[in-house]
Design a protein around this nucleic acid. Sequence first.
DNA 1: CCCTGATTCGC
DNA 2: GCGAATCAGG
Length: 193
Amino acid sequence: MSWTDERVELLKKMWGEGQSASQIAKELGGVTRNAVIGKVHRLGLSNRSGGGGASKPEAKAKPEAKAKPAAKPAKKPSAPEAAKPAPEPKAEARQAATPARKQIIPAGQPLPPQPSANEIDPEALAKVSEIEKKAKKLTLMELTERTCKWPVGDPATEDFWFCGLPVQQGKPYCEAHVGVAFQPMSSRRDRRR
DNA sequence: CCCTGATTCGC
DNA sequence: GCGAATCAGG
């Protein structure tokens, strides 16, 4: 693929819209995000500003200088995550709803809380039970830093496994489980739907 | 690990 | 001019 006028045009348009290089590359097809970025630079629109006279008095001379002009408007408009986790459940003392068992988990690492029939958004719970069907059902040893560490079932039984779905970046759980793990305290009180 | 853009450098 | 490889951040 070559950079035809049309393709360059689309590139400019998308870049101007704040699309990421990978998105643009995907849209164009036949190119990688590297190609897109390279082109963007060659076109001289690395700085997403249509301003016009993008004066660049200084450019090279300092290969080590890592200047951060900073110009990140809003790349990811999609972020249905508003409420932040208030109480990080890192505490090990969080064993609420295991029916009646000595949930003595051998692992030394902090394990996630049990679903606890607490009061959680019905929706969130529904979501959980839903995804638990798709769960990878991993064993303790199969867990990685990229797998949801939400435990399901009774540790003292064969019927015990970890969710194992892809975690939400940063978090220890998948999206669904993050939902019930980090309850916005707001919805805790006076939550009726 | 996933992602982002920035830079380099052989082609 | 091109873009893979690499670098630097998040």
